[in-house]
C-alpha cells in the first residue's frame, strides 16, 4: 500500500496528464459521433453572436454579390410558384430562410453556422439548400443558432440520382477543392457523360427529390475497375454562401417512423 501510494505520488503529473488526455479524446469521439451539446460549439449563443457581428461587417463588402444572389433566388421562387400552381411540389415541405453567420471552407471537416435554431423549429437532420442547390445537413441545434455539416465535409454523404436514367449514387467530398465532389457506387456498365445532371434522390427524408446538386465534370474508368471515378462540379458556391433555406419536411417524422419500424 505504502509503495503504491509512493508510485502514485511520483507519477501524479503523468497520471493527471493521462486522465486529461483521455477526457479530451472522449470529447473528440463523442463530438464526431453525435454532437448534442450546442454550448460547446459555435451554436453557443455568445460565440455565434460574435460571428454574426463579424459577418454583418463583412456583409457590406459583398452587397453586390448578395443582390445578384437574391435576384437569382427570386427567379427560382417564381418558378416554384408556377410549378405549385400546376401541383408538382409536395405541400408538406416548408422552406425556412436563414443566414450563414460563420463558415470554414479550407479544412477537411468544414462547418457552417446559421442564425436559426430550435426556436424556429430547426431539428437535427434537416436538409439545407440555397437557390443554387444542396448545401448540407443540420448537425447541432441551439436555441437561436445551428451548426450545419455542408457537402464539403468529408463526413457528409448525400444520396443522389442521375436525371437521365434515375440511377442512384452517393456524393462524397475528397477534402480538396470546394467546387468539386465525387460520386461513388456507380457501376462500370453505366454510360456516364460529362454534363450529366445530378439531383437529390429523395430516398432519405432529409432532402425532397430533385434539388440540384451538380453536373458531371469528368468520369474515369480504368481497366479492371468495377466502379466509375466521377468528378462532379457542385452547383453551390461555398466560397460565397450567405442566404440559405432549411428544408422542413413535415412528413419526415412519419417516414422515419415507418423506416425504423422495418428494422
Amino acid at each position: 500500500m505504502q509503495t503504491l501510494l509512493k508510485i502514485l505520488q511520483r507519477y501524479s503529473n503523468f497520471l493527471v496528464f493521462l486522465i486529461l488526455e483521455v477526457a479530451a479524446f472522449l470529447l473528440i469521439v463523442y463530438h464526431n459521433a453525435a454532437p448534442r451539446s450546442h454550448v460547446l460549439s459555435s451554436a453557443n449563443a455568445f460565440i455565434a453572436w460574435q460571428y454574426e457581428q463579424e459577418s454583418e461587417v463583412r456583409g457590406y463588402f459583398s452587397l453586390r454579390q448578395t443582390n445578384e444572389q437574391l435576384a437569382a433566388e427570386n427567379a427560382v421562387l417564381r418558378n416554384q410558384i408556377e410549378s405549385m400552381k400546376s401541383g408538382e411540389i409536395a405541400p408538406n415541405v416548408h422552406y425556412m430562410p436563414a443566414q450563414v453567420v460563420q463558415m470554414t471552407t479550407d479544412e477537411l471537416h468544414n462547418y457552417l453556422t446559421i442564425n436559426r435554431g430550435s426556436k424556429d423549429s430547426v431539428v437535427r437532420g434537416q436538409g439545407v439548400r440555397n437557390a443554387e442547390g444542396v448545401v448540407g445537413i443540420v448537425r447541432t441545434v441551439g436555441p437561436h443558432y445551428s451548426v450545419v455539416l455542408p457537402i464539403i465535409n468529408t463526413h457528409t454523404h448525400i444520396s443522389c440520382r442521375f436525371t437521365k436514367n434515375d440511377y442512384i449514387a452517393t456524393l462524397v467530398w475528397d477534402g480538396k477543392d470546394t467546387r468539386y465532389a465525387n460520386l461513388t457506387d456507380v457501376a462500370a456498365h453505366m454510360v456516364i457523360n460529362a454534363g450529366d445532371t445530378i439531383v437529390t434522390s429523395g430516398l432519405s427524408p432529409v432532402f425532397p427529390e430533385g434539388i440540384p446538386v451538380g453536373i458531371v465534370e469528368s468520369s474515369r474508368l480504368q481497366a479492371g475497375d468495377s466502379y466509375h471515378t466521377i468528378r462532379v462540379r457542385l452547383n453551390t458556391d461555398f466560397k460565397r454562401l450567405k442566404h440559405v433555406e432549411v428544408i422542413q419536411n413535415r412528413s419526415k417524422n412519419e417516414l422515419e417512423e415507418l423506416q425504423y419500424g422495418l428494422d
Binding site: F17, A24, F25, L26, L40, I47, Y111, V147
Partner: peptide, 20 residues
C-alpha cells in the same frame, strides 16, 4: 479555442500535450 472552431476536443488534447 475548440468552441470557436467546432472541433470539440482537438485543441484541448493538443494543448494538454504541450503543457505536459
Amino acid at each position: 479555442m475548440d468552441m470557436f472552431c467546432n472541433s470539440l476536443g482537438i485543441h484541448t488534447a493538443s494543448c494538454i500535450l504541450v503543457m505536459f
